[in-house]
Nucleic acid binder design. Structure first.
Lengths: 214, 214
DNA sequence: ATAAAAAATAGGAAAAACCCCTTTTAGCGT
DNA sequence: ACGCTAAAAGGGGTTTTTCCTATTTTTTAT
C-alpha cells in the first residue's frame, strides 16, 4: 500500500511537477493538489478519504499562507504530517513553520532523491530535518532570534497597507475616516510591537509578511 | 524523434520536477538541467550534442540571471528557442525577457498541458505567447508604460538600498562616508527623476525594480 | 449596569524629512 | 593650465514624522 501525499502550492506548474515526481516514488502517491490553504480545508472537510498521510506545503502562498495552513492542519488533523517547502531560508520562516507544527522543512533547492528520503523518514520515524534547520533550532534555544507571530486588528492591517503608499499620515487618516491622531496611535503602537523605528521598517514588515504585496 | 529540452533553474526540486514532467510529453525529452547561466555556457561549449531545441529559463536566478542567460544563448546559438519561466508578472520583466530574445514567456502558475502546448507551438510555429504578454506588448507599443529603464549611478543604487533600511539619512551619509547634504541631494534628484514624493516611494521603486530585495 | 479594557483622540516638542537654491570641489578633455 | 561639467556640500525654511503623556469614547465582560 502506498502512502498518500497532498501538495499545496499556488504555482500550478510546480505542484503538478512535484505530483509527477512523487508519483514515481515506490511508496508514495499524490491524492490531489491545492492552490492554497482554503482549498485544503474544503478538501479535508469534504471526505475522510481526502485526508492524506503527508502534506507538502509551500510557505509563500498568497491567500492563506503556509504557516496558517500548517497550524490549521495540525490543529484539526494531528495524524497528518506536514512537510514545508520553500525557496527562502530567511531566518524565522523555518522556525515559524516548525512551531506551527510542520514535521520538517525542505528548501526547493533539493534533489528528487532527497525528497523521497525525507518522505520515507517521515513515515518511518515521524521526523525529518535538514542540517540547516538543526542549526536554526540551536540558535533559537539560545534565545537569540525568532519570536512572535503577532496578530493584527483589521484597522492595523488597513493602515499598514496604506502606509506602503506615498500618502501622508494625514491623508491616510482621511482615507480611513479617522483622526490623524488615531493614525499616530496606530503607528506608534505598531512601532513598539514590531520593534521598528520608522515608516520604512513598517513598509518592510508589511512586505516581508505579505500584508502588502508590491 | 523527440525534441530536446534543457531546464535552467536554481531550484533543483523544481527543475527536476519539470524534467520529469517534460519527459512524459510525447514529443519532448530533457537533455539535462542547469542551476544557472554559467552552467549553460559550459555545457553548450562542451559538445554540440548538448545544444537543445528549447531552453526553459527561470528568470530569477542568483548567479547569472535569466535575462543575461537568454541574451547569451540567443547571441551564440540563434537556433535555440528560449522559453522563459517565472513566478512574477512584474511589469518590465516579461518585456525584458522578450527583448533579450526569449520566444515566449510562461508563469509558473500554469498547467502541465499548457506547458506541453507551448513547447509544441514553439517547435511548430516558432512562437508562443500568453495573453498577458500580448497585452504588455500592446501597452509598450502604444508607449504608455515601460518607457524608462533609467540608469542610475553606482552611488544612487547604494543609497537606494540603504534607504530601504531603517537608517536615518544622516546615518546613511555616515555609512557612505558622505555629507548628509550630499545624501539630501541624491534623495531630491531621485524624487524628481522617479516622480515620487517621499521615502516610501523610493523604497517601493527599489523593490519593484529589484534594486533592493526584501 | 457598571467596571475594566480597548480604541480613538489630543497637545506639544524635538527630530527627521522634504524642498529649493547656492557654492565648493573634483575630474576630465584639449 | 584652463575651462567645463558633474558630484559633493552647504544654508535655511516648511512640513511631516516621531515620541512622549494624557483624556475621552466605545466595547466588552460579568
Amino acid at each position: 500500500m502506498k502512502y498518500s501525499v497532498v501538495v499545496v502550492d499556488d504555482h500550478t506548474l510546480l505542484s503538478q511537477a512535484i505530483e509527477g515526481m512523487v508519483n514515481t516514488f515506490d511508496k508514495f502517491k499524490v491524492l490531489y493538489t491545492c492552490k492554497n490553504g482554503g482549498e485544503v480545508q474544503e478538501k479535508f472537510a469534504a471526505s475522510p478519504r481526502n485526508i492524506p498521510d503527508i502534506v507538502l506545503v509551500d510557505v509563500n502562498m498568497p491567500v492563506m499562507n503556509g504557516i496558517e495552513t500548517t497550524e490549521w492542519i495540525v490543529a484539526n488533523y494531528p495524524n497528518v504530517n506536514v512537510l514545508a517547502l520553500s525557496v527562502e531560508d530567511a531566518d524565522g520562516t523555518i522556525l515559524k513553520m516548525l512551531k506551527a507544527g510542520a514535521i520538517g522543512y525542505l528548501l526547493k533547492d533539493t534533489k528528487k532523491e532527497v525528497l523521497e528520503k525525507a518522505l520515507l523518514e517521515i513515515m518511518d520515524n515521524g521526523f525529518y530535518h535538514t542540517k540547516n534547520v538543526t542549526n536554526l533550532l540551536l540558535d533559537s534555544v539560545s534565545g537569540k532570534k525568532s519570536k512572535n507571530h503577532i496578530d493584527f486588528k483589521e484597522n492595523e492591517i488597513k493602515f499598514m497597507r496604506l502606509a506602503c503608499s506615498e500618502l501622508t499620515y494625514k491623508e491616510i487618516a482621511e482615507k480611513m475616516f479617522l483622526s490623524p491622531k488615531t493614525i499616530d496611535g496606530y503607528r506608534d503602537s505598531l512601532f513598539t510591537k514590531l520593534d521598528i523605528r520608522n515608516r520604512v521598517g513598517l513598509v518592510m514588515y508589511a512586505i516581508k509578511n505579505k500584508i502588502y504585496t508590491p
